Every structure is written in structure tokens, then in C-alpha cells.
Simulated scan of single mutants.
Amino acid sequence: MGRVTVRRPVVRVGPDGRRSRPDALAAEEPLEIRVGGRALAVTMRTPGHDVELAHGFLLTEGVIGDRADIAVARYCDGVDDQGRNTYNVLDIALADGVPPPDVGVERNFYTTSSCGVCGKAALDAVRLKTRYSPAADPVRVSVDVLAGLPDVLREKQKVFGSTGGLHAAGLFTPDGRALVVREDVGRHNAVDKVLGWALQQGLVPLAGTVLLVSGRASFELVQKAAMAGVPVLAAVSAPSSLAVELADEQGMTLVGFLRGETMNLYTGDTRVE
């Protein structure tokens, strides 16, 4: 498997002058996801939990809705200049009766900031694809529990502690218990890994859960949470305008600027006690 961190020399400059030392960097490598041998998407990710990433990606793109929809996930042959498998191409075989996706090599056809579709088109696309609406989820979570989640997430970010260069996503119960935490150079990949783990565990739709991300809440992340039936999405930074629109339309609770005892409740504030 690929390395999660890479050691590189660095010249550190400070009050005492310059000195050379090794530094740990978060690894970043391409992962090509194929379905039935056909290239579907290429994403830059931190190696590790690739099968979870692929499950989460296919779930949030509306290709699959259950772990039984995937028959086999296997790495394809791909070697570096030393003859070692790079583990950077993953082929997914869908179960019988599951239709293949009709898209090309393009990550998140509807959700990237540069895709060129208008807000209404993006919202309509998610509405049509969502299998698990969180709107009727009666879950409640306290302000105290929400306030403590970022600290729990940071404690479980092992690679971030050595590199300072990774995003994280964590799935929690309403009482603040961490179910799973994943790290990646891409926040969308971290979320895909979390949701892929949940799909493999048979937990989707994710009723009664809180998803926390260690950055801003973009439209893409709200879309992913909605596709998995997550009722509460919290972020330590700001949401985008379209993220708030989508969360409101899907009946989700969206929490932003979750820092210490303060937070902004953008949608679904009745779930927060």
C-alpha cells in the first residue's frame, strides 16, 4: 500500500537562524476509480482506506445505495519504476442488476465549484439522486456535545499530528461517541472514507448521527451527507451559500464555526438542544 506520510528535508528558519532537518509530509497520490474496468473518476488522495473511499464516492454519486450493490473491489496492476504495485487504480465490479454510471472521468459531475451549472440545477440534481432523506429524522443533540466534538476529532487525527497537513471527517452518535474518523488531503475524500466505512458496516442510511468536518462546509460535503441520510452536519469553519440552501432543502441541520462553546446554526436549529 502507499505511504501515508513522506519524509523530506527542510530548512527551518527561526530566531536562532537556519538549520536543516527532516520533515513529515502528508502523502498525496492519485487514485483512479474504475467501474467494470471503465475509468470513472480520478482523485488526489492520501493512500489508505481506498476501498472505503470508493464505496463512499459511489454512494454519494448515486451509483449504489447498499453494500450489496458492490460485488468486488480490487486493485489493478500498476507498477512504479522499481516494479512495485502502486495501488493507485481500484476497479469496482457492481452486483448483478446494478446499472453502471453513465458519466466520464470527472469527479462530482454536479458539485464542483467550476462545473458551470447554476444553483438551481445543482439542487435539482441532488434532489433527484437522494435515496435517503434526513428531513424526518427526530435526532436531537446538545450544545455541549457539539462543542466537544472538534477536540475528539483532533485527538484521533494521528497523521495530522505529525504533518499538520490533513483534513478529517468523523461520524458521531448524538451523545458524542466517535464511530469512525478518517483523514485525507482532500476533505471530500475524508468524508467519502467515513461514509464508505458506514456503508460497509450496514449503517446507511445514517439516521441519528452527526458528521463533523475539519474545515468549511461546501455544497459538495452537504450533498454527500444528504446522500447518506446524515441529519446533522457540523463544520469548524464557514458554510457556502449553496451549502446552506441544500441543507435547508434536505431538512438537515447545518452547524458552522463550531469552535469551543460558540457555533452558528444555519438550518435545522430545532435539533440542537
Rank of each mutant, 00 (worst) to 15 (best):
residue 200 Q to W: 07
residue 177 R to P: 01
residue 203 L to D: 09
residue 230 V to A: 03
residue 159 V to N: 11
residue 170 G to K: 05
residue 217 A to R: 00
residue 214 S to E: 09
residue 186 G to C: 05
residue 190 A to M: 08
residue 153 L to Q: 05
residue 191 V to F: 06
residue 218 S to C: 14
residue 188 H to V: 14
residue 223 Q to T: 15
residue 197 W to D: 11
residue 167 H to R: 12
residue 188 H to S: 14
residue 221 L to V: 14
residue 167 H to F: 14
residue 226 A to Y: 08
residue 184 D to E: 07
residue 157 Q to A: 14
residue 192 D to M: 10
residue 198 A to K: 04
residue 186 G to W: 06
residue 160 F to D: 12
residue 155 E to K: 11
residue 193 K to T: 06
residue 184 D to P: 04
residue 196 G to F: 02
residue 154 R to W: 13
residue 200 Q to D: 13
residue 183 E to W: 09
residue 194 V to N: 02
residue 186 G to T: 09
residue 180 V to W: 00
residue 218 S to E: 15
residue 201 Q to M: 13
residue 200 Q to G: 15
residue 224 K to W: 00
residue 204 V to G: 02
residue 183 E to L: 00
residue 233 L to M: 00
residue 186 G to E: 14
residue 216 R to Q: 12
residue 227 M to S: 09
residue 187 R to V: 15
residue 159 V to F: 02
residue 167 H to I: 04
residue 191 V to S: 09
residue 223 Q to W: 14
residue 215 G to K: 10
residue 164 G to A: 07
residue 206 L to I: 04
residue 215 G to E: 10
residue 212 L to N: 05
residue 190 A to I: 01
residue 182 R to I: 00
residue 186 G to V: 10
residue 195 L to W: 08
residue 232 V to Y: 00
residue 223 Q to F: 04
residue 155 E to H: 10
residue 171 L to E: 01
residue 197 W to F: 15
residue 163 T to I: 02
residue 172 F to N: 00
residue 199 L to G: 10
residue 232 V to W: 01
residue 231 P to C: 09
residue 195 L to I: 12
residue 159 V to M: 06
residue 186 G to R: 13
residue 213 V to D: 03
residue 212 L to P: 05
residue 191 V to E: 07
residue 202 G to W: 05
residue 158 K to M: 10
residue 202 G to A: 09
residue 154 R to A: 14
residue 165 G to Y: 07
residue 229 G to L: 12
residue 197 W to P: 02
residue 186 G to P: 08
residue 203 L to N: 13
residue 157 Q to Y: 01
residue 224 K to H: 15
residue 214 S to L: 03
residue 167 H to N: 11
residue 200 Q to N: 14
residue 169 A to P: 03
residue 214 S to I: 08
residue 175 D to R: 07
residue 163 T to F: 02
residue 192 D to V: 05
residue 205 P to G: 04
residue 205 P to I: 03
residue 158 K to G: 10
residue 169 A to C: 15
residue 178 A to T: 12
residue 196 G to Y: 00
residue 186 G to N: 12
residue 158 K to S: 15
residue 165 G to T: 04
residue 187 R to Y: 05
residue 182 R to L: 04
residue 164 G to S: 02
residue 229 G to D: 07
residue 159 V to W: 01
residue 168 A to N: 12
residue 225 A to K: 03
residue 155 E to D: 15
residue 175 D to G: 11
residue 176 G to F: 02
residue 219 F to P: 02
residue 217 A to P: 01
residue 177 R to A: 14
residue 201 Q to S: 15
residue 210 V to S: 01
residue 185 V to H: 07
residue 197 W to N: 07
residue 184 D to G: 09
residue 159 V to H: 04
residue 226 A to S: 15
